[in-house]
Write a protein that binds this DNA or RNA. Sequence first.
DNA 1: TCACCATTCAACCCAATGGTTGACTAATAT
DNA 2: ATATTAGTCAACCATTGGGTTGAATGGTGA
Lengths: 110, 110
Amino acid sequence: MVTHSQNLDRIFRALGHPTRRAMLRRLSRQEHTVGELAEPFRMSLAAASKHVKTLEQAGLVRRTVRGRTHYCQLNPRPLAEADEWLGSYERLWTKRLAALEALLRHPEKE
Amino acid sequence: MVTHSQNLDRIFRALGHPTRRAMLRRLSRQEHTVGELAEPFRMSLAAASKHVKTLEQAGLVRRTVRGRTHYCQLNPRPLAEADEWLGSYERLWTKRLAALEALLRHPEKE
DNA sequence: TCACCATTCAACCCAATGGTTGACTAATAT
DNA sequence: ATATTAGTCAACCATTGGGTTGAATGGTGA
């Protein structure tokens, strides 16, 4: 059994690396093969393949194998989960940002 | 110079541990000392103190030292940053979830 | 002054991450 | 048939992460 908390662990950790965020960015526009995902980076294909795997294990990427090529597509659901978690804090930062904005607008009221 | 991407790295990684998320949860209700933050966990104070430090380095916690006790308060700004990043994917998952919901409502249309 | 308390620091341990290379598997193209 | 291509796997390496313990720092209270 994998708990919700463990889900969040994997999701947030997967998002915590620039290579993987860049991969997600590309996948948000269209499906790509592992090779295509790897191409922009100065790292071995094996390394990139590992990144894809951790995205997959976080549920962020779904892979369908056709012949020898693996097609990856973004599964945005876990992003929604992460967003939901953040959502419970939204009230806090909007309050904070509103206060900041007010301060910028009327500095004399300090 | 610390880039925006590195900021996101630290933020997402900080969120990728249940202990730290629990600490943030508590801090979202009120300020707490390091000792108070550590108390609920079955780990040494030193270990908890490290978690606080990584939250601080991600910018999620601000610390003010008064005498020998360190008071921590949540700084929600980086959460807003993370949310902003996720926001650019929101269109994707709402579309997806809407499609799913429609499917559940009218399964015959498959 | 002296004991105590809140916290960090330093050294250490083990497991996980992020990368490499080389071998392997299996599908495709010539 | 053979060479090439897509991708994984396994072994390895260095760094980081998460935990421990014991000592150090520096306020606080009697």
